[in-house]
Write a protein that binds this DNA or RNA. Structure first.
Ligand code: MN
Ligand code: MN
Ligand code: ZN
Ligand code: ZN
Lengths: 147, 147
DNA sequence: CTCCTCTTTTATAATAATTATCAACCGATA
DNA sequence: TATCGGTTGATAATTATTATAAAAGAGGAG
């Protein structure tokens, strides 16, 4: 989706960001895709319009956009592998800030409402769900960084 | 949790794995922790019992255990950042094998059943949920690798 | 137990994603 | 025009993970 520079300036301004050309093109590339894209992927799109843009600029701006709430992060876990020795089916509660994971034993999925929205062929025989929120520590404004 | 070598051999055997000492100690370290641990973290525990173990061995065995179903992966997303330009609250359906993400618009969380299990202080005011399963392509045995 | 074969382990190098550094640049303003 | 603070971009650094290949170990046959 293309925006006028005025439109983008409005959006950026509302989030406390200067409206640079690079920023606008990165933002448009994400919005236009209607998908769930990676920085490399966005970089590829953006280069069609700004061939000499730096990959670092794409990363910088994506990170800024996520931090300021213009974009949502689709991979909100810890960045590194975590494993669980508990094989009993259970769900997880994940803190969006510090990434801590807790078990949730409850059975809280309403399959009657979920089923009609599952695409044909998708296998949900043993569904595992993660619910994201903010843990108590992180809810306070002086929250510490993830370990 | 400690196991006799015989007990571990039984477990490993059932999953088609040879029962080496390193494997047993790595496995015990994960199970004993009752948590959601990283390879580095597990490595630190294991070194207390096998000081000269290689980090690669820890990684190798964790990966094997996950592949063979002795452990569950807590971070089943694509390993790299993905962003979403759609800020309308919505949930995601994630393929555990190829990591593809699709939107789910349905409202399928039964808060009555979930609420009693949420720890005190956890902020769920705008809950975002991810449901994991297998997409149609990946459900077939000849599924291709993630892009 | 001994020998054999195949697997696993280990040290190390390689790869890949992301972040840090910092000089050059830009646009607004005095 | 000179200045100033934020931004960009080339590049180096960092971090997590995987690949490589030689040495050690596991398990099975005899
Ligand atoms: Mn768990
Ligand atoms: Mn989405
Ligand atoms: Zn937290
Ligand atoms: Zn899939």
């Amino acid at each position: 989706m293309r925006l006028t520079h005025k439109q983008f300036r409005e959006i950026a301004w509302n989030h406390g960001l200067a409206a640079t050309h690079q920023r606008q093109v990165v933002y448009e590339a994400v919005i236009a895709s209607h998908g769930h894209r990676s920085p490399e992927d966005i970089y590829a799109s953006v280069r069609k319009r700004i061939p000499h843009i730096s990959l670092a600029t794409v990363y910088n701006n994506i990170r800024l956009f996520v931090d300021r709430g213009l974009l949502r992060e689709v991979t909100p876990h810890a960045a590194t592998l975590r494993v669980d020795g508990n094989l009993k089916p259970h769900h997880h509660l994940v803190c969006s800030r510090c990434k801590a994971v807790q078990d949730v034993e409850a059975d809280f999925i309403d399959f009657k409402r979920l089923a009609p929205h599952i695409p044909d062929g998708f296998d949900l025989t043993r569904p595992v769900v993660e619910v994201f929120g903010l843990c108590r520590q992180c809810r306070t404004k002086t929250a510490r960084k993830p370990k």
